[in-house]
Lab assay of single mutants.
Amino acid sequence: KELVSALYDYQEKSPREVTMKKGDILTLLNSTNKDWWKVEVNGRQGFVPAAYVKKL
């Protein structure tokens, strides 16, 4: 599985998104959309802005 690192804090703005803190390591589930990537963090799945994470 592919991992990404959070470059910035992000506070979810809808139920489809997830909150992350800078430095968090997230499991990348889907990166086909260039703007929003689906990740899993702390057992929750949702979307984060692609520009806020980088692949490890």
Rank of each mutant, 00 (worst) to 15 (best):
Leu56Thr: 08
Asn42His: 11
Glu17Val: 06
Gln45Val: 15
Glu2Lys: 10
Leu26Lys: 01
Lys22His: 06
Val41Met: 13
Ser5Lys: 15
Thr19Ser: 15
Val39Glu: 01
Ser5Val: 15
Ala50Trp: 02
Leu56Gln: 08
Leu26Trp: 03
Pro15Cys: 11
Tyr52Val: 06
Lys1Pro: 14
Leu7Trp: 05
Asn42Phe: 08
Thr27Ala: 09
Pro15Ser: 13
Glu12Met: 14
Gln45Ser: 12
Thr19Lys: 04
Gln45Pro: 06
Ser14Lys: 07
Val48Ile: 09
Val41Gln: 09
Pro15His: 10
Thr27Gly: 05
Glu40Ile: 07
Glu2Trp: 14
Asp9Thr: 06
Leu56Lys: 06
Glu2Asn: 12
Trp36Asn: 02
Lys38Ala: 09
Pro49Trp: 03
Phe47Gln: 03
Lys13Asp: 06
Arg44Val: 09
Met20Ala: 02
Val41Lys: 13
Pro15Arg: 10
Thr32Leu: 10
Lys1Asp: 10
Gln11Gly: 08
Thr27Val: 15
Gln45Asn: 07
Glu12Asn: 08
Asp9Met: 04
Asn42Gln: 09
Tyr8Asn: 08
Leu7Tyr: 04
Glu2Ile: 15
Met20Ile: 15
Pro49Tyr: 03
Asn33Gln: 10
Glu12Pro: 15
Thr27His: 10
Leu3Gln: 11
Val4Tyr: 15
Ala51Glu: 11
Phe47Asn: 04
Gln45Leu: 08
Asn33Glu: 10
Lys13Tyr: 05
Leu29Phe: 04
Leu3Ala: 06
Gln11Asn: 14
Lys38Phe: 15
Val48Met: 01
Asn30Ala: 09
Tyr8Glu: 10
Lys1Asn: 12
Tyr52Phe: 14
Lys1Tyr: 15
Gln45Lys: 11
Val39Lys: 00
Ala50Ser: 13
Ser31Asn: 09
Val4Cys: 15
Val39Asp: 01
Ile25Arg: 06
Ala6Thr: 03
Pro49Lys: 04
Met20Glu: 00
Val39Arg: 01
Tyr10Gly: 00
Ser31Met: 11
Pro15Gln: 10
Leu3Trp: 13
Gly23Thr: 02
Lys13Ile: 08
Glu12Ala: 15
Lys22Phe: 07
Val4Glu: 00
Trp36His: 03
Ala6Val: 09
Trp36Glu: 04
Glu17Ala: 07
Val39Ser: 00
Leu56Asn: 07
Asn30Ser: 13
Met20His: 01
